[in-house]
Nucleic acid binder design. Structure first.
Lengths: 197, 197
DNA sequence: GGGCTAGCCTAACGATCGTTAGTTAGGCAA
DNA sequence: TTGCCTAACTAACGATCGTTAGGCTAGCCC
């Protein structure tokens, strides 16, 4: 049981890596198996289908983003209640943290959800919208209290999340910028983008 | 000859559409043919291979970005010589303009170049780096003359381009925001992100 | 009217796809 | 020792993949 769970995770991790740089459709079951030095058919002892693997990665990553955002908003509220800037900075930091903690899975989450079947794709889309709404709400709060200035909060939200997700395209855990530094910079850039001058 | 060219372009346009929302690997030759009410094998009168179609889309879009940037920098230099803010705003506007002029092709350019063979992928990567360097250079200029303030111009460049490219994920020619309005907003957001306060 | 050509057709190729079935080898518990 | 369980194996299935070969048809130019 325990062994099966870890083996399953091993498969998902290898699949995350491959899905991230060849895409879901561009990666075959046999590709994943080869990376584990195993025959393609052997994976079906641990997995019920290829889409099932994708779903595990995507759903798990979605949950991580949601949980991190929960904690970030609670923390911000505890530190500076009602401060939209603090709340948004906290959300940005949480997002970058999940992104950098597992770039492969995050990259798959960001790009490969389109390959899911209709119901699962719809579920992820709904959760994605709800997640994005958390950012937008904080931005609107900031506009309401005069801390932020912009004419289109919805577009600002999309723009910010695009720039954050862009990190998944180039982040390298062994690269020049450590994750914490990246988060600092993005909080700074985001803040200056929104701030009333 | 002329007819062949337009038919060829028709194929590329349909392929852009499909590649954009199923990915290159997730789209078959027969899918493209079906969208044209034609048999799969019939496409090979107009096309030498599937990758050839992808390459046409990607290379053409790359050229459009490059040409637009050329003109943008020339215009900015004519209007306000040596002004980094003007130059960058002009580049942003040009980028958004190419992006919105053909969202399908732009989306394919942004995401599907990974599916190209090694040499073509390398070429696109090089051109992409050169393009990104144009933005970075303007940002560095701005920092040098004190118009911009930031600690990491390279990261700011990546962030800006990610946020611009994000437009390809949601832009709809028939949607609420016209392309010109989007460009205005993005110039505004970008400007405020970089500006020395 | 005869030939050229553009555009599509049907049929098929070998390869690879996701997946199923049935089997085997090794370790642990009774 | 017996028997189960995990994790792998080989072999094969039907479907689909990109691509090739060869032939048909409709319109235009001489």
């Amino acid at each position: 049981m325990v062994e099966q769970l870890t083996r399953r995770r091993e498969i998902e991790d290898v699949a995350s890596d491959l899905f991230r740089d060849r895409g879901y459709a561009g990666t075959s079951i046999r590709d994943i198996a080869r990376a584990l030095s195993v025959q393609g058919a052997s994976l079906y002892s641990h997995v019920t289908s290829k889409e099932d693997v994708l779903w595990s990665i995507v759903a798990r990553t979605a949950s991580r983003f949601e949980t991190a955002a929960d904690m970030a908003e609670a923390d911000a509220e505890a530190r500076r209640p009602g401060d939209p800037m603090e709340a948004l900075a906290s959300l940005v930091r949480a997002h970058v943290s999940v992104l950098t903690a597992d770039v492969d899975a995050a990259g798959v989450f960001v790009h490969e959800w389109r390959a899911l079947g209709p119901e699962r794709r719809a579920e992820i889309l709904a959760r994605r919208d709800a997640y994005q709404a958390r950012f937008r709400r904080r931005i609107e709060d900031g506009v309401a209290v005069g801390a932020f200035a912009m004419t289109d909060p919805a577009l600002a939200t999309s723009t910010i999340l695009s720039s954050l997700n862009g990190v998944a395209a180039w982040y390298d855990p062994a690269g020049r910028l450590p994750a914490a530094r990246i988060a600092d910079h993005l909080v700074d850039l985001t803040t200056r983008m929104l701030e009333a001058s």
